[in-house]
Write a protein that binds this DNA or RNA. Sequence first.
DNA 1: TACAGTCCTGTAAGCGCTTCCAATTTCGGC
DNA 2: GCCGAAATTGGAAGCGCTTACAGGACTGTA
Lengths: 332, 332
Amino acid sequence: MNRPVTVDDVAKHAGVSIGTVSRVINNAPHVSRKARDAVERAIDELAYVPNKTAQSLAGQRRGSVVLAISSDDPGLFANLFFAQVVTGVNAVVEETDLELQLVLAASDRGRARLSRIFKARAADGVMLLALKENDPLSALAESSGLPVVHGGRSLDSEPRFYVDADNRGGARSAVEYLISLGRRRVATITGSQDQHVGVARYLGYREAVVLAGLDDSRVAHGDFSEAGGAAAMTSLLDRFPDLDAVFVASDAMAAGALSVLAARGVQVPDEVAVVGFNDIVTAQHTTPALTTVRQPIDALGREMTRMLLRLIDGDTPTSLILPTTLVRRESA
Amino acid sequence: MNRPVTVDDVAKHAGVSIGTVSRVINNAPHVSRKARDAVERAIDELAYVPNKTAQSLAGQRRGSVVLAISSDDPGLFANLFFAQVVTGVNAVVEETDLELQLVLAASDRGRARLSRIFKARAADGVMLLALKENDPLSALAESSGLPVVHGGRSLDSEPRFYVDADNRGGARSAVEYLISLGRRRVATITGSQDQHVGVARYLGYREAVVLAGLDDSRVAHGDFSEAGGAAAMTSLLDRFPDLDAVFVASDAMAAGALSVLAARGVQVPDEVAVVGFNDIVTAQHTTPALTTVRQPIDALGREMTRMLLRLIDGDTPTSLILPTTLVRRESA
DNA sequence: TACAGTCCTGTAAGCGCTTCCAATTTCGGC
DNA sequence: GCCGAAATTGGAAGCGCTTACAGGACTGTA
């Protein structure tokens, strides 16, 4: 392990000053063709790699962005969400020379780290995923003045910059599909109504049902969990024995609902059609395979990152809502 | 956004020198009680947060560890593996003041980044997950002199420091379980034989079968994919119509096998018992629910990180093989 | 030929911290 | 109450880079 090569070494080797070397590295203007060539050759010959730490101490750029995930929500980790978001984010980050720092903000320690990052401006920007409603971190994020992009929205306040899936539209089209199938007594199992996703999907359901002139009272509230879905389905069956379709706000709940339906001997989709939401892996393995709404999760990651990069560049991007797609399988 | 608080501000405020402030921050010895108190109060009052960049430029510690994942293997992302590893790693990293940097080393760009990190020694240590067999990165890692911990092993060479699941033992106990159930004509669907996991699980199968004095020739090679599992099952059924159990080296393949079995009208587990490996989410949703071998994935992440921290501290840890557990469900 | 612009380049001053060194203080034991 | 050793402290020298700033070399024009 020799002493690592530095700008000085390169400068000496190329017969120029360190200022020039720096300009070449950052391909700044005002460098003659000749000098540039000499420096580049020296860099090659010495296998010089700039020291990022020094670059960020001296410059104003930190050289890294953070992806913060509040995984309190088990749903976040229960499917491929996490992996897909990271993949999307990485794909874009990879094209820059920024580093990707991961912070799991579920624990207190994680939240403390995140707030340290904000206070110390220890990154060039932050992507915040699934912050809890009314999260103090959210305020900290704003006040830090750091570029911040949110993944998803929350009930209490709309973030300045966010990327979100079209939960409402997705729900609406799922229900519209059910109606196009001839179903007229469409029920819904909602997700938690204290989260934006839960509310949005419920609104989408109502929109479609009401617009079709149908009854929107067949509602049972769930909590996004499989058990909650089962309980809600039971309640639905008891209260509205005539229902012929149900839009379930998550696949996990749909799985629960499906098992209740099976236990009661109700034929799916013949007697009751079922549509879920999320398209988790399990959806294709339920019996019958679940028709569901897919969110473009990797696109979410990619767009969040693009947005953040623009913010860092000083642009003012506009928030984005990404379209969902209906995946037709057997349950509807 | 005023000028951030620096050591000088703290020193001035506390009436000491910056050297003393630094000693307090790093709780180094040789600081009087009085000075320490004064500095701590100043830090509090000024809400001082040390600048990590400066710390690492000045000191020898970089302040971050990287988790590098070679996601070429779709299996890595296809289940919760990724999320769980990250959770495990994060849990340990969180207790230190290190930052967690994520590098997806599947793409060329990703690999280039990783090699840059090695060359520039831009991190305090690296965790390498699922590197391909014979990966050049592996050599680079060694030669960099950076602390490196591997997740899993590879066929060509045993890493100096690694954490791995007990694939062989897990396979063996799965097969032993099948045998304890009275099955005597146990077949196996292997994973890719050019990967350590694939070979290890196959060896475990053979071990159990041979030790029990049974025939170990009922073998079909798969590639860890669902389709591969289906094809292998078909081949198995054609060649060994008498088989009464099959140990499948991955749940994905087991799902494929199960559907072939169902299509052929073979009763599971009555006629043929099936055991998978990995315990992916889907395992509990197959019909029948899959008995499988679970790996302690978050523990893998945690242990890798602990090992890395010890390496960074200059200790010499010993590699680890983590036990697996059999999850009994309906398929066996 | 002279002069105002342009370009290019070297120099030096930091960025905020750690750490070494030397100076100062403190302390136990005689 | 004096001496050497140990503890504590301040000061200064970097860590490797970016970025004014100012000087020098050229260009085109009058």
